[in-house]
Design a protein around this nucleic acid. Sequence first.
DNA 1: ACCAGAAGCTACGAGCAATAGCTTTAAAGC
DNA 2: GCTTTAAAGCTATTGCTCGTAGCTTCTGGT
Lengths: 191, 191
Amino acid sequence: MSPRAGLTTDAVVTLAIAIVDEGGPAELTLAKVAERAGVAAPSLYKHVKNLADLKRLIDLRVVREMADALRTAATGRERGTAVGALADAYRDYLQKHPHRTGALTAAPDRADDELSQATHAVAEVVFAVLRPFGFDHAQAVHATRCLRAAVHGFAGLEASGGFGRPEDVDESFEVLKTMLVQGLTNYSEQK
Amino acid sequence: MSPRAGLTTDAVVTLAIAIVDEGGPAELTLAKVAERAGVAAPSLYKHVKNLADLKRLIDLRVVREMADALRTAATGRERGTAVGALADAYRDYLQKHPHRTGALTAAPDRADDELSQATHAVAEVVFAVLRPFGFDHAQAVHATRCLRAAVHGFAGLEASGGFGRPEDVDESFEVLKTMLVQGLTNYSEQK
DNA sequence: ACCAGAAGCTACGAGCAATAGCTTTAAAGC
DNA sequence: GCTTTAAAGCTATTGCTCGTAGCTTCTGGT
């Protein structure tokens, strides 16, 4: 089944992610992946359709990892605690892998079922966490968008070095979490 | 002073931004800019140091435009109204130019005075809007980060097509604005 | 032992950024 | 009005990248 038993698609993706993590998405090049794999560049096409496909596979893995991280963080917690844990997990992930922000920002191609499902899985976790707040469906969608936007925005800006000032970023994030929990509570009580 | 009186640096940047607006940042190439300018590619180097420099000039213009838009939106308004206007203006700008999100996400190089000053100008507007809330300096920094993160996150996700569901995005943004204004108010009253 | 297919290779073409070095043109000074 | 000078443009070239074509080699199954 696999002569030389060398590379696999997963291994290529792992090497590619390492390059992204080290130098950012712009540094990703098939030539560099091939070098790390100890292989000539064209050989990669046996495992990956092309560069765009490789990027898609990276996004897919990142989104799935994030979904897992969020699920883990949310289990066994409720309401404000769960929201806070979700936010912390999201931020932690991007702190550890700041160059992966793009994978979580890009909208999945509508025709890409695998990736669409993976991003859907992320939304599912958030939905589940918001359930105890008692939103109706439309409200839950609005609340999910707000939560995701705020946390993703914060973590993304932090990851790209957008917070230049010396003030403690952890404290800023605490303020944000408080705002969100209070905001969600108010939103669920009103109307 | 200018033989042929053809191109200027500003004109090159304008053409480049048009390309970004049409097809996204990945589509930007010196060859395409040259084609639109009616000039051979190497001629561009008389007006721009290199591709990275061109990208920096694009970012600079975008950040300055955003600062202007926010300033305009904030003038003559106060507290909640001003915060809402700021948020709307930020979102409006990225709705009209969805491919410019990157310019507002990237942290300015610390050594780049011009760009640093431009981003500082944006923060100044937000600071000014938050002044009536009576925050101390550290609080103002935290509040600015939260406000920016939430609005930028929302507008950025919307710009990249991240809100797939049919529910009204305007309404989601109204919810977010309400949360922010209430959150800022609470934050200013507590402690 | 053999054979089919997967995994690797070399060679090549096209597109892009960037540099070198030359030519043209327009503005400024006399 | 002519000359000078420097900016603005050009062609040629290099190096890097993605991607394809086509060949070779190794492996696993029968």
